[in-house]
Amino acid sequence: MSDVIHLEFDVAGNNFVSAGTATNQVKDTLRNLGIPNQDVRRIAIAMYEAEINMVIHACGGKATADIYADKIEVVLEDHGKGIENIELAMQPGWSTASEDIRGLGFGAGMGLPNIKKYTDEFKIESEVGKGTKVYLRVNFS
């Protein structure tokens, strides 16, 4: 399987019920390819956190996944409100989520730290008023 598999997804904003479907499809695809469980889980958790962020903090966006023989790269891009201070946003526990979002089980401020923890590479670019772009890479063991 040296060929690249390219997947594209529209992530609907403000649809809390469907949030996670893009990640689910990526996870199922990797499973079917026989990628080791621990690697599938790492990218699934990281992409899911990023997908949830796009739904709760931006108004949805686009996600792409490129699967190679030895790694997966995921890019999530939105045109939401952007992040003012990325260093602050990366701190465990720091969150701008509303009480409503917290009531739904998110907004603990652990999303970005989780993403960093589970990926082999994590890049985030953001501009206030323009949007946010997240790049994730997980190498297969």
Partner: peptide, 8 residues
């Protein structure tokens, strides 16, 4: 009750 705690 916080899903990110679970995901960690």
């Amino acid at each position: 009750d916080m899903m990110s705690d679970v995901l960690a």
